[in-house]
Design a protein around this nucleic acid. Structure first.
Length: 657
RNA sequence: GCCGGAGUAGCUCAGUGGUAGAGCAAUUCACUCGUAAUGAAUAGGCCAGGGGUUCGACUCCCCUCUCCGGCUCCA
């Protein structure tokens, strides 16, 4: 018997049955064999030393691939568990998978790990790695495995729950053994611990067994592993870079906002610089809403509880609402967690005809949600925030074009804000969606999918991830360092129109139920600005920068000229500050640069006499002397132009792409 | 909400059961300067808040608030 293995380049080679992956790799080339960490046969990853027993597609897996890195990180997790069980008597272990950029392992220990513990564990891991212990695979019957892990309740639970479909036919469970350490595992693993080139433990924290907060609280250790120390260092540098971009840190450094403890958790105050940034964002949002044919409404921050019973929020959402306020007349009021019921009441304020539709109501609506204390996170997850919200009411026949318009709007906004990589998720009906007419669901999902296809944005379907009241589209952007953020959302609501008894009179003088589209373009303005800050690392594109130009007079005698050109720049629509402090020029420059002002203008004797400036743009290493003031002004005004400005859409008459 | 860590001057942080410390920022004075920190002096504190223990608490214990890292959650 022999096997026919098809290599990735399409060529087919014969090998004897039972040949190992390593032997095949050696037959291809010694270099490949040295860098191999596993092989893939018909889509299944296998250990190098495991005999191959079937023909098919074959590939050698190295650390150059995601799969290879997973093998490395998974093996690193084993070594971590081995080290912890060595060092902490009485500890037991749960699970330890590879994750993006690293791995973790969960343990049950008497005392939570300290930073010193992590150092000790990492040192022990390095010993294990230097001993180059081989990983050996072993298949066991379920009962043998239960006997082997009798002292480890989490492993026992895993063994009991292993489905036959999860393991190779004929095997119950597999374990990997290196010297005296054994772990339950499907594999594959590196051939030996010595093949881990660089590993580092990062932090420890709490985690629940099986992610269930009612079950055991475990201690999780996170680590990272890379093909070389150089790549490890690069990763650690990237973490530092992300930390430097942290919007909470930049918010303080650039004096944009703060979260005064006196106000309570998750409640932000915007300082003047941040307030300017926010005004710019709000202005642009309103301008786009107007351009895309939305009307503006304004609604209060609280309402009688009865409203929230009608909307269903007090049935489904009560734990995220701030508690009620009892009033003298026994009426209870609630602060709003959402704007929808208010906009619905605007719709309901008079009878609607199909001729009135679509009705697009928008508002920068402040909402308050009682987020759990542990999840509040700067601007990204606050308890009070402002949605650039809208609710569109339309006929079934209009739904397609309305969704196209909403998608166009959202994509315009995200691109204007500087995001070029945008992806959508289409979330469909959840299995346990309790209510709604099925044909409306089907129609809604089909229409959403069609609108997405027509928009050209790349999307994937998230089956069953929709809200209970309707399917939705979520927009995700990638930021400058590759992180993915969810921002916009376009949600169909098949429930609220019914709960509030919304109707319109159709052409045949019959009452029809309108479709309703919730849409937040930026999501929450606070969150959006948090993401913007991190995306731009605080160095905003000029149109967003709170201060666009910093004018620096060289000496006191240049203050007058500095103020004159500041006026000229303001006349050109620019936001300008003059630094008339008695700091040295170097210090003033340093301040402007640390505040990430897009442009610095230094003016001295030469400039006063010849109407010029010294100009330095953020990111440039050096200045340009003697730029004529007119030229500098025009250049900066051009740079500061807002994005957008597109022709009207012939179909809707609305300005579109 | 859960697990762990933390809260000392505006900021970043030292500190110890026995009188509270530095750098930066601030203020004042001098300097008037051409692209990332001029110098000196001064001022600045309920050591997050509240209860204990102690002759004595910033320090030890308990509670609350806020923040940080995760978990869970984000209809």
């Amino acid at each position: 018997m022999s096997l026919e293995l098809r290599y990735p380049d399409g060529t087919v080679f014969e090998h004897p049955d039972g040949v190992t992956g390593l032997e095949v790799a050696e037959s291809i080339g010694p270099g490949l064999a040295r860098s191999a960490v596993a092989v893939k046969l018909n889509g299944d990853l296998r250990d190098l030393s495991r005999p191959l027993d079937e023909s098919g597609d074959f590939a050698v897996v190295t650390l150059d691939s995601e799969e290879g890195l997973d093998v490395l990180r998974h093996s690193s997790a084993h070594v971590l568990a081995q080290a912890v069980l060595d060092l902490f008597e009485g500890s037991t272990f749960a699970i330890g998978p590879a994750i993006d950029n690293g791995f973790y392992y969960d343990f049950k220990v008497d005392e939570p790990f300290t930073p010193d513990d992590l150092d000790r564990i990492e040192a022990r891991m390095k010993e294990i790695i230097s001993q180059d212990q081989p990983f050996e695979r072993e298949a066991l019957s379920r009962s043998d495995a239960l006997a082997m892990f009798g002292a480890h309740p989490f492993k026992t639970e895993i063994i009991e729950s292993v489905e036959p479909s999860e393991v190779t036919p004929g095997e119950d469970v597999t374990v990997y053994r290196n010297i005296d350490f054994v772990d339950l595992c499907r594999g594959p693993h590196l051939p030996s611990t010595g093949r881990i080139p660089s590993v580092k433990l990062l932090r420890s924290s709490g985690a629940y067994w099986r992610g269930d907060e009612k079950r055991d609280q475990l201690q999780r250790i996170y680590g990272t592993a890379w093909p070389s120390p150089k790549e490890l260092d690069a990763y650690l540098t990237q973490l530092e870079e992300a930390e430097k971009r942290d919007h909470r840190r930049l918010g303080a450094e650039l004096d944009l906002f703060s979260f005064p403890p006196e106000l309570g958790s998750g409640l932000v105050v915007w300082h003047p610089k941040g307030g300017m940034l926010r005004k710019i964002v709000e202005d642009h949002s309103r301008e786009l809403h107007q351009r895309f044919g939305f009307d503006f409404v304004f609604t209060p921050h609280l309402a009688k509880s009865d409203l929230w019973w009608t909307s269903g929020h007090l049935d489904y959402y009560a734990e995220y609402m701030f508690p009620g306020m009892e009033l003298d007349n026994e009426q209870e009021y609630r602060v709003k967690p959402m704007n929808c019921p208010f906009h619905i009441l605007v719709y309901k304020s008079r009878p609607r005809s199909y001729r009135d539709l679509p009705v697009r109501l928008s508002e920068l609506g402040a909402v308050y949600r009682y987020e759990k204390s542990g999840v509040v996170h700067g601007l990204l997850r606050a308890r009070g925030f402002t949605q650039d919200d809208s609710h569109t009411f339309c006929t079934g026949g209009q739904l397609g074009s309305e969704l196209a318009l909403h998608l166009d709007f959202v994509l315009t906004w995200l691109r204007d804000a500087g995001f070029s990589e945008i992806e959508a998720d289409l979330s469909t009906q959840p299995e346990k969606a309790p209510v709604g007419e099925q044909d409306r669901w089907d129609f809604a999902e089909k229409t959403l999918a069609k609108a997405l296809e027509d928009s050209g944005v790349s999307f994937r379907i998230a089956p069953g991830e929709g809200a209970f009241y309707g399917p939705k589209i979520d927009m995700h952007v990638k930021d400058a360092i590759g992180r993915r953020w969810q921002l916009s959302t376009i949600q169909l609501d098949l429930i609220l129109p019914e709960r509030f008894g919304l109707e319109y009179t159709a052409a045949g003088n019959v009452s029809e139920r309108p479709y309703m589209i919730h849409c937040a373009k930026a999501g929450s303005l606070e969150r959006f600005m948090g993401v913007l800050i991190e995306h731009h690392a605080g160095a905003f594109p000029m149109w967003l920068a709170p201060v666009q130009v910093s004018v620096v007079p060289v000496a006191d005698r240049h203050h007058e000229y500095a103020n004159q050109i500041a006026e000229r720049l303001r006349d050109a629509g620019l936001r300008v500050e003059v630094d008339d402090s008695d700091d040295t020029v170097g210090e003033k420059i340093r301040k402007a640069l640390t505040h990430k002002h897009p442009a610095v203008m230094v003016v001295g004797d030469d400039d006063v006499s010849s109407s010029t400036v010294g100009l330095r743009l953020y990111g440039e290493e050096r200045d340009t002397r003697g730029v004529p003031l007119i030229e500098a002004t025009n250049r900066l005004a051009t740079m500061a132009a807002k994005p957008g400005g597109r022709p009207p859409d012939p179909r809707t008459g609305v300005l579109g792409s």
